[in-house]
Amino acid sequence: MLRRIELHSCAPSSRWRTTSTAGSHRRTSGQWTTQTVKSRSMRRMRMWGRGRIAVVLCLMLALLVPIVLFATGRLTLNVTASVPVGLYWLDRFDSRTALGNGRLVLTCVPPAAGRVALARHYVESGSCQAGETPFLKYVVAGPGDQVVVSAAGVAVNGERLRISAPLTRDSVGRSLYAEARMYRLAAGNFWLYAPEVRSYDSRYFGPVAQVDILAVARPLFTEHQR
């Protein structure tokens, strides 16, 4: 009789411990799963945070670099019709720089021409001697070349440039003057030109001195490159 009671009394205890142990395992497993999810979520949040910081830094850098390049004179924006509208990279010009025909340059013009351009708002205020911004123009003739200006256009060494006939009035009716004459360009002198009917270039004010040329320009992004 006693043996039966002992066996009977032990059975429920054994079942209770088993159930309790199983429940403990389930709770432990549940806790481990929750901690894993939280850990993964925190890692994702940290990665997302780092990604956002990286994007912000890249945007700041993308904005800062052009500002620095403009401020240091390595970039210029052209909005005139003389050359394609867009951004241009500037290589500093000095006496060792070769200026072959067709090179695009950033240059100041003779002071009298600069004052006219500024007064008539052909250009904005800038750093040149007469207070105007520098011009972007093509070099089409240099020392030793012969340039002839006539009502029909500009001829370099006997070859007429297209769209080079000087106008007698600008777009709002103000008078323009181009002296009909022949030039033999001296050392250090260059002829500026742009293939645009209203380009304000050497056809109106003659050659420019080498010391007035500031940089050689190269297109980075222009309307013709789209």
Rank of each mutant, 00 (worst) to 15 (best):
G73K: 05
C128I: 00
V197R: 15
P219R: 02
V79F: 10
Y88N: 01
V79M: 13
F70D: 03
A215Y: 00
N101V: 13
Y200N: 06
S20I: 07
Y122N: 02
T97D: 01
A98K: 15
E223W: 11
R15E: 10
S164P: 02
W32G: 06
T33D: 10
Q35K: 10
P143Y: 07
L104P: 03
L61W: 13
V216Y: 10
W32L: 13
R203A: 06
V116E: 15
L192A: 01
S14L: 15
G30L: 13
C10N: 08
T80V: 05
K38I: 11
G144C: 10
A155K: 12
G100P: 09
A178V: 09
L220A: 11
R43Y: 09
L2Y: 08
K38A: 06
Y200F: 15
A130S: 07
W191E: 01
E196M: 10
R15G: 10
V79P: 08
A217D: 03
Y193N: 03
V116W: 11
S39R: 07
S164C: 03
L220N: 09
I67A: 15
V216W: 11
A186H: 11
A11F: 10
M60W: 10
S175N: 09
R181G: 01
V56D: 14
M1Y: 07
S41L: 12
S39D: 05
R181W: 04
Q129V: 06
G49H: 05
G206V: 05
G49W: 05
